[in-house]
Design a binder for these strands. Sequence first.
DNA 1: CTGAAAGCGCTTACAG
DNA 2: CTGAAAGCGCTTACAG
Lengths: 335, 335
Amino acid sequence: MATIRDIAAEARLSIGTVSKILNGKRKGSRSDVIRNAQRVYAIAQRLNFRPNAAARALVRRRSSMVGILLRNTQAHRFHFLAAFELILGMNERLQSAGYLTTLLRVGDIAGKDREVPRIFQEKLIDGLIIISGMPPDIVAKIETFFEQAIWVESSVWHPNNCIRRDEVATGELVAQALLDAGCRHLLWVGPPPVASSHFSVAQRLEGARRTAHVAQVPMEIHEPEDPYIISEELVRGLTPRTGVIAYNSLIAQALANQAGRFGKNAGRDFGLVSCDSEADGAVTFPQLSRAEFDRFGMGVAAAEMFLRMQSGLIKKRASQLVSSQWIAGTTLGLY
Amino acid sequence: MATIRDIAAEARLSIGTVSKILNGKRKGSRSDVIRNAQRVYAIAQRLNFRPNAAARALVRRRSSMVGILLRNTQAHRFHFLAAFELILGMNERLQSAGYLTTLLRVGDIAGKDREVPRIFQEKLIDGLIIISGMPPDIVAKIETFFEQAIWVESSVWHPNNCIRRDEVATGELVAQALLDAGCRHLLWVGPPPVASSHFSVAQRLEGARRTAHVAQVPMEIHEPEDPYIISEELVRGLTPRTGVIAYNSLIAQALANQAGRFGKNAGRDFGLVSCDSEADGAVTFPQLSRAEFDRFGMGVAAAEMFLRMQSGLIKKRASQLVSSQWIAGTTLGLY
DNA sequence: CTGAAAGCGCTTACAG
DNA sequence: CTGAAAGCGCTTACAG
């Protein structure tokens, strides 16, 4: 592995000078200066020279690395797939700003058994981006160690440094669409709310509930243990006046599949909307009327937030709520 | 930010001693030795001390970081979602071995416009894990800069350091299942093969073709521009003796959706299998008969390969082919 | 512009 | 065990 010292020796220059040349810190145009630079470039290239990032980080006092923290649990696998789009968005923006991203996953079992991620044991990253909710002890650790943290789609919500989807508005949006289409009663199908639920579970329902309330339309709530298993009874109860609100598009797809078995079609025999749109859903179930949400874009926005924070231009960055977009589809119901 | 020097000052010990204590490099039991250690621990804790990773990496001559290289293209989004499971598997294993993973994405546009990822410009990672195919110029760059590289699900296939799914066997597996179920003609539905196609496109088809050939059963091939759009004509042609082989479960789901509109049911009115099973598919279309594949597990295996390589126990690690598993489902067809 | 020197924060032979 | 010293590979004031 060639070092700057090897280049200096070959070029018969000091390592300081080589460093300056390689970092473009000279602007002179004297012929010997130019020639030195060209010699150095040539040697560096021939030797496959690449500066040692650790040495650089040490002297610059920053690593230009950002950590992306995920929760490491089996139960969150779908959320994880969605998280990937966020991550790719962050990666895109951060990579182009010269940052490297490192994926960190933190377990769920609190206490001594839990392996403490290396990131809490070493000074390594310049800052942290946290995706989704975290257990309280992890949140506490983050707040002690990382001044520079951005919370994305997380249960943590401060006036600053947070970004998340406006889930209440999403619930309102889809419920209103069903009402506008003529539905006279609503039916919510979502996962059971538990303490560790993602905030979207409660907020989407809350938004739908509000809208139903204002319109004085009744809303029934289904929160089965496994929301992807749709009961026959539920399907039998569907009428053209029913507007089903699925928490996400997987539930919507499962419901449409099950309804199909009983000869019922979403859009013809009942109304169906989803609060969310997973990547695959847009391909396999494009007719689904739904609220969509640009996760990649939010990743970019979160990275932007992070970069501004790093630049020190502003110590704090006001939190952002991101709106959903409406995708009409054909499963809305009667007009 | 506290450094080891701060601790040394407070503890009235030399920084070398503090370093040794913090790294558990002493085993004496003299009372003053023990007391020193405890003082140092206490001070480190109080000061929120974490060793500087860059300094450590510099002196140890290794960063304990692994790069995971992905291809950055719009066209690969579905592949990317699958890649995430691989990544999580790698991350799991590597994190527990004290490695940090950094996500690298490399663009598709060759030539000067393409931003050279920082990873090719700095000495930073101990090794690289490459996921999926890469353009030739990138492959060349990797081979010059990284001796320690593992190729995962990639078009690159050497006798060593590679791991991928056995796609020919997968094609054989699903085709045989249809034949065993009594299908008398097969129908392949997949993406059009182009130069940059993933190797699985050609290999799955190849496997199916071989099996059909051996059984002397005809096989028709559909490779529409957009394989997720299933034509009415195709659906009309389906009979109980037809065995449809979908390249992946998204295509299978799209086909099942479209067939449903014409009152045709997979498993009753025709046979349907998928060569692959995306995460979402298992939830929304559990009845689908398909070949499955543990991506997380492959990620772990790839990480394992990497770790052995790093440990230097073996310079090269023989390449591995991973088999698919058969998930029976109910869409197979007549018996 | 160029070079010698100090220093980033650690680890690790080497004496004591 | 402990401490002083060298060194990991760079960057950057400071003189010249």
